[in-house]
Design a protein around this nucleic acid. Structure first.
Lengths: 98, 98
DNA sequence: ACTTTAGTAACCCTATGGGTTACACTTGGA
DNA sequence: TCCAAGTGTAACCCATAGGGTTACTAAAGT
């Protein structure tokens, strides 16, 4: 089952900012051009105002030599936590299996 | 890195249909009501014409006593494969890290 | 003081999830 | 045979969200 967390999981933008941009001394404009996306699109993600889509995950994986799953998993964990804590319709669902 | 696959990964709808609905002898209408979503919404997913969202993953996890990650991972793998094979803009991205 | 880099707002377009209603098809039981 | 139930889906409506461009503002660095 979902491990209970008290605080929001890390947004992929935070990882990008701290573990990539700052560490490698890269700017948003620079990376956005390398990714072949608009500066706005990348800026939104880095500042945690946008989500990493499958297409963006593929771009990030090529740029930083990682797996696309790394970024999608971060995004998924983030999204799931926020959905679980902001909507409650799913709590009304009753089990069909034991 | 992404493991090369020749064929599309399984859509969560296929798992639902074969491993849950058919096995447990459940109908779409029945499950849709249990999930508290419209028949159409659930039908689209089962017939692989709709995606499992975080909210739906939570509903499915309660109904079938699984983790929401199970469903989201299936969807993610499916989406990633299709994005990688249908768009190619990401291939133009050049590495910023070795 | 000028240039570069960033954050962001405004606006447009497109895609998609989710709901309701309605129609056509299939199947099983009365 | 006839009807009800279950199912797939189309037509519509609404809201959200990603992505692009342009432009303005602010903060650094040269």
């Amino acid at each position: 089952m979902t491990r209970a967390r008290h605080r929001s999981p890390t947004h992929p933008g935070g990882i990008l900012k701290r573990h990539y941009l700052e560490t490698m001394n890269l700017g948003i404009t620079e990376v956005a051009e390398a990714l072949r996306v608009s500066r706005k699109t990348f800026s939104k993600i880095v500042n945690e105002r946008g989500a990493v889509t499958p297409d963006m995950a593929l771009r990030l994986s090529k740029a930083f030599n990682t797996t696309p799953e790394l970024w999608l998993n971060l995004q998924q964990t983030y999204d799931l936590w926020h959905t679980a804590h902001s909507s409650k319709g799913w709590m009304a669902v009753h089990a069909l299996a034991a």
